[in-house]
Design a protein around this nucleic acid. Structure first.
Lengths: 346, 346
DNA sequence: TTTTTTATTGCAAACGCTTGCAAAATTGCT
DNA sequence: AGCAATTTTGCAAGCGTTTGCAATAAAAAA
């Protein structure tokens, strides 16, 4: 087995192989103009000495660190986890490492951008819908590779990966309408986010296209979190004519809805149907399993990672905007309202 | 606002502040022997120029990178997520960044150790119970700081953070016994893991101490995953005299159990009680909410991070072994068997 | 063969920072 | 004021790579 010495450098390898250190460097960085026999000798020496490249030195000299930054608001979210999984999968195919930043880390958001560019990442993936967009500009000005995930660049000058929020919501509502629901409660996401807007828009459009009139009371404000989902659901259930179905703008708030429904002594989907958005892993864990609009979060992560790597390796590649389709995942949290009436009469 | 130039180095700052670059370096790395007025001038220059330290250069020269590696099997686990959250929280208090490695990344496990030590981390946190332990030796030989989380070092020479698996299981079983259960099914974890052994041992001990005889059929092998939980539960339910309660070695498999119970047309906890272990976030999301033994995963992450940092900053600090208590979290997935019979007779 | 061309290799100069050592300034005593 | 002790500063030498340029060796062409 290879010797394990704390500081074997290319100089040692060079000596061992009887070549110059630059040749070793070339072999190691996959440079082509090296004679095969030499390459072999070097590789053997590397093996014999147990040499491992020193990343920091390599990046100092070469300008690339082989690290990709991932900036997220936090890890407590399921949603983020799925995206991260996709990213990680893609990265493992290449040789990049993942440096994780959470936004509660440092204070000023501008400093993020700076730290990233000067820090040890070659590029950065951003899943931080809530940060204002100043730092995006900073990144762009510095010409530092980055890709936004499920997030909007108001100036439309960034590579972005997102999904068809509007259409997903449209289909979800259409599905509920198809089941026979006419009074559908809707719980919005955090309305300063584009995705929240889009989902609401999709919902409204579906109602309109079906000729169902919209009652204002049926649209309640949420914030994509469970707790607000619970409370918004309470408001809906307290209406003198409550809805027969509730469409929550994401799964997390749908969980809150389900909880509220149970707290009211009602059953999902028997008394009230619930539909969510995202399809985070928990959606199939809850009971009844949640019918929801699937955003291919892992796929989004994967594609974003790929885009970023391309951009790092080919800096003047034009920006791209990839929008993935959503799909309705039908599980057990919805049924037609008629059916519940029948059930009641039994 | 600060100028944003791609390459402001300490030389630029030094010039701007009218001092030597070494002085700038000293100010920036918090060295004490610098006159206050000088320090201020430097800091102003830094601000004015928008200087940000280049981590790679710093670590090349200084030997420290300010990065901590986290090696985990994957992100798809809830369990890992919680630990990671704790780590991240602790790290954000200091100035370390988190580099995430997943084990599906590279092949040979020895290479992990090597890559870590020579790569860009100052220390590493390991949550990889399944890797054989050779690489631990490598790390130790290299005198590279590391801490194991929820994992055993057979040689007992590593810093470890874990929890009282045995006692937690003991209490869970005691709780079920207290409810009146006598036939308790047990689904093991992956038995090559110490934690799985301990949990089984705790369960057995509780039975023994209560004078309840153990039936072999009631112990089914699982692997900590949901699917196997489902299947093991099926085996239990197919017994001609099935248990009135099932203790799954972790939450994930408990979810599988709940699913299986439902698939058999039975209700939790009415017909059968279910208890888990871990208390991952989903445990309170499922219906009925899962009664489980809480492992303070985030706390474990936090403490491990703290231990690691101490070890990095003070290399000859002796290793430590921290074991955190578990606690029973009573929710709605258990009730006494008598009660169900009463229910039946109503 | 001799000359060109092309493939290989080596040297030296960065990359941006830290740190030991020594010089310069300052402070405290006598 | 003179001297020692202490604080502050600067210089230079790395840290382990990459890479442009130039030198050398090998292959192809003449």
């Amino acid at each position: 087995m290879s010797e394990i010495n704390t500081s074997v450098t290319i100089l040692d390898v060079a000596r061992e192989a009887g070549v110059s250190y630059s040749t070793v460097s070339r072999v190691l960085s996959g440079y082509n103009y090296v004679k095969d026999s030499t390459r072999e000798r070097v590789l053997e020496a590397v093996e014999r000495l147990g040499y491992v490249v020193n990343q920091q030195a390599r990046s100092l000299a070469g300008g690339k660190s082989g690290v990709i930054g991932l900036l997220v608001p936090g890890l407590d979210n399921g949603y983020i986890g799925e995206i991260a999984r996709g990213i990680d999968e893609e990265l493992s195919k290449s040789s990049y490492d993942l440096l994780l930043y959470t936004t509660h880390r440092t204070s000023t958001e501008a400093s993020y951008a700076l730290k990233m560019t000067k820090g040890l990442a070659d590029g950065v993936l951003l899943v931080v819908p809530l940060l204002t967009t100043g730092y995006i500009e900073t990144l762009r000005e510095q010409n530092f590779p980055y890709v936004l995930i499920d997030q909007v660049d108001p100036n439309n000058r960034s590579s972005v990966v997102d999904s068809l929020n509007r259409q997903g919501a449209y289909e979800a509502t259409q599905y509920l309408l198809g089941l026979g629901h006419r009074r559908i409660g809707f719980i919005t996401g955090l309305m300063k986010l584009r995705s929240a807007e889009e989902r609401l828009a999709g919902h409204m459009a579906a109602l309109r296209d079906a000729g169902v009139s919209v009652e204002e009371d049926l649209i309640q404000t949420g914030d994509f979190w469970r707790r607000e989902g619970y409370e918004a659901a309470e408001r809906l259930l307290n209406l003198h004519n409550p809805p027969t179905a509730i469409f929550a703008s994401n799964d997390l708030s749908a969980f809150g809805v389900m909880e509220a429904v149970r707290a009211y002594g009602l059953q999902v989907p028997h008394d009230i149907s619930v539909i969510g958005f995202d399809d985070i892993p928990q959606a199939s864990l809850v009971y009844p399993r949640l019918t929801t609009v699937r955003q291919p979060l892992d796929e989004m992560g994967r594609i974003a990672a790929r885009l970023l790597i391309e951009q790092i390796e080919n800096p003047d590649r034009p920006i791209r905007h990839v929008t993935l389709p959503t799909s309705l995942v039908i599980r057990e949290s919805c049924q037609s309202p008629q059916q519940s009436w029948l059930d009641l009469r039994r």
